[in-house]
Design a binder for these strands. Structure first.
Lengths: 215, 215
DNA sequence: GCCTTATGTTGACGTCGTTAACATTCGAGA
DNA sequence: TCTCGAATGTTAACGACGTCAACATAAGGC
């Protein structure tokens, strides 16, 4: 199942209290934005369209978000939440060793290929650096920390070279991030179903890059 | 010197034949677009603004480009041209061995950090996959080929593992691409001047990932 | 029950990319 | 050299977009 699918697409106004007040418009706006982004990409996201799908005026959004940018930040934040969960699950579920590391890498690329537009909102520079808000920064940071912690643990087990963990983590992140971007960017054409194998290959190469050198 | 700086920014209408016809508007449009993108980013690029800077009406552009997208494609194509040249120079200039490979990796990341907005136009998904036109596809392909050829040569020298070169090249490209994106995306904060060292570190890790395993 | 506040709507503005209709200049062929 | 089609540039306008100001309606504590 795709990672960031909002819960109830077909019946978004279930909890509407009456014809005027919506009840939980903020979350509904984020969900609808995610839906549109999934279907047609970020550049197709329109505040007017979001409003129309929710049977709400085009400016109702401004009671919950400062501007369009803020809506995108919320989308990215939600993406980072499920993203981090999938990484942590892969790491824990595969034994927190070499296999866990490989599983985490595959999970990363799988998330990106299954949620390409969403991934692009998170990493494509649509949300500016500085003004992104504390919540997104925290959530993004937490995802990165999953990787750093895993590397430190692998270092302690003697499996990964003893470079500064942050430097190591930035490299690993960059490597899978780049593979993910290429995979979803159309830059690399791949037969259907081959993306999982490519992800596995990437993870193995990254492992070779960071594993402790033979003594 | 920055890679993609157009030649004559201060005197763009040198060759203007008269007040009406410009003479070489197409190239001037691309140059001005590059200038704006460098200064303020892609999202700040406006056809009206491009025209104004060139003392030309806002729709003159449509005699040379189908739409804004086509202008961006031209920008990306020009970027790919100098990009490939820098990669090839680095590879040739450093001995076409392990050192050449590392130099190529550093040159890649240097190009991105020195031309961040331009790099984003090339790889950030602003130019769609299918409709990009044959010229951009060829230029992008040529850049990739520099890397593939280098890897094949290194394989023949016994320095790089004998995996399928394309698979290998996609991994390498993705790894440096990801490092470049993180470096220019503000996702990773770095003290000034540390980016060169980080690029060198990335290149070394990638080398460890692809070098021939010890027998 | 009233009144403050939160929430949603309507109307409007300025900017954007794009198109259509028109103007000017270039250059090849007589 | 003159002419006329083709290339190139301009003006006016349109619809879509994000956003703001003014107004309408509902919710909930006193």
């Amino acid at each position: 199942m795709a990672a960031t699918t909002p819960a109830a697409a077909p019946a978004p106004e279930r909890k509407r209290r009456n014809a005027y007040h919506h009840g939980n418009l903020r979350q509904a706006l984020v969900d609808q934005a995610v839906r549109t982004i999934r279907a047609d990409g970020v550049e197709a996201l329109t505040l007017r369209d979001v409003g129309a799908h929710l049977r709400v005026s085009r400016t109702a959004l401004y009671r919950h978000f400062a501007d369009k940018q803020a809506l995108l930040v919320a989308v990215a934040t939600e993406g980072f939440r499920t993203f981090r969960k999938e990484l942590a699950d892969a790491w824990d579920g595969a034994g927190r060793g070499r296999e866990g590391f490989l599983a985490q890498g595959r999970a990363y690329i799988r998330f990106a290929t299954e949620n390409p537009s969403h991934y692009r909102v998170m990493f494509g520079g649509y949300v500016a650096k500085g003004d992104c808000g504390a919540e997104l920064a925290a959530e993004s940071e937490a995802g990165f920390r999953v990787l750093v912690d895993a590397l430190v643990e692998l270092q302690h087990a003697g499996l990964v070279r003893r470079d500064p963990p942050l430097e190591l983590a930035v490299f690993v992140w960059g490597a899978v991030h780049g593979a993910a971007m290429l995979a979803i960017g159309g830059q690399v054409v791949r037969p259907d179903g081959a993306s999982a194998a490519a992800a596995a290959y990437t993870a193995e190469r990254v492992w070779d890059a960071v594993k402790a050198p033979a003594r």
